[in-house]
Design a protein around this nucleic acid. Structure first.
Lengths: 110, 110
DNA sequence: TTGACATATTCCCATTCTAGAATATGATAA
DNA sequence: TTATCATATTCTAGAATGGGAATATGTCAA
């Protein structure tokens, strides 16, 4: 049986370290040409283009043509599902809340 | 040349939908035996064991033997890096902060 | 011990992924 | 037009992945 999620899935898209690097560069909100990313990240151009393709299919970046280059901009809102999902575990690394919860539990069954 | 991140990477580990399902079941904090997960998720047992293996190697779950079964418990703290990373984009989906930022920028260059 | 139960592991297969090199496409400038 | 720049696409190879079936391992109960 085939695999599960295609690369159009946000979770899969950000699983690749290089793609996270690209996203990080675009985090500022400014659009970047492919060549800029190539220079900044010192990655071969086809690699950058291909990773941008995956990010684009996942809706994480948008493209705009400007002359003979293409400007990629981050569509950060697409990362919200990931944030939301991890959010539901936040209490497990928040000390304060853990203590409060423990005390509450102790109070419940004395 | 080989691939990038092994399955011991948190981002890769949670890229699999079934593994996220397992994590979701364990979210309550209670330890679950493999058989319980099999019943709850209606997945074949070897599949569950294998996915648990990946999650374990990534540090996302811990195991404890109890009789002839193994109890898996979520180690949610391991998901914090994901949350932290997405956190840095939060302002892009928070309307209020966007407006504040816009006003600040307008003030900076009048 | 032996048999049943719970879980892990192995093997095989099909698919997917990424890197790398080469090449194609598209757009501008001369 | 033609040459050049910027980017995308294609092709190939190697590796990793997930599924399914079968099997091994480990543990308790009779």
């Amino acid at each position: 049986m085939p695999r599960a999620a295609a690369a159009s899935d946000v979770f899969s898209a950000i699983a690749e370290p290089r793609r996270r690097e690209i996203i990080t560069v675009l985090r500022g909100g400014r659009a970047h040409a492919v060549g800029e990313l190539v220079r900044i990240l010192r990655m071969p151009q086809p690699a950058v283009s291909k990773h941008l393709g995956v990010l684009h299919r996942a809706g994480i970046v948008s493209v705009r043509r400007h002359g003979r280059r293409r400007l990629y901009r981050l569509n950060a809102r697409e990362l919200k599902p990931v944030h939301d999902w991890t959010q539901s575990f936040e209490r497990y690394w928040t000390f304060q809340l853990d203590r409060i919860k423990e005390r509450a539990e102790r109070r419940t069954r004395p």
